[in-house]
């Protein structure tokens, strides 16, 4: 697929912008974290589009964000499961 550019994104409505970014991010995240890829992609889509574009171009920044998202997700799930 052709690379996603800032101008392509700018031409799309806001919700479609996240869709486009998610479509590109998801396969990269699956490669890193197959079990949680859908959740992690959902989390990362909260981030600014410009930063998401940067992550698509920079495997290191994507990896560090994915690691961060996993930590947040695990903390969130641990909180959900533990009794008061």
């Amino acid at each position: 697929p052709e690379p996603l550019t800032a101008s392509m994104l700018a031409a799309a409505p806001p919700m479609d912008q996240k869709q486009l970014l998610g479509d590109r991010l998801y396969p990269l995240i699956v490669a890193q974290q197959p079990n949680l890829a859908g959740k992690i992609t959902g989390m990362l889509l909260e981030i600014d589009n410009s930063e998401l574009l940067h992550m698509l171009e920079s495997p290191e920044s994507l990896k560090s964000k994915v690691d961060e998202a996993i930590a947040v997700l695990q903390a969130h799930q641990a909180k959900d499961c533990s009794p008061k």
Partner: peptide, 26 residues
Amino acid sequence: SHANTVTWPPEFRPGEPWKGYPNIDP
């Protein structure tokens, strides 16, 4: 029907439209 519990985070599924976060008010 709508679930009354908030599931966080919403899961991105390739090939399905991304609905985003229900509590985001643009």
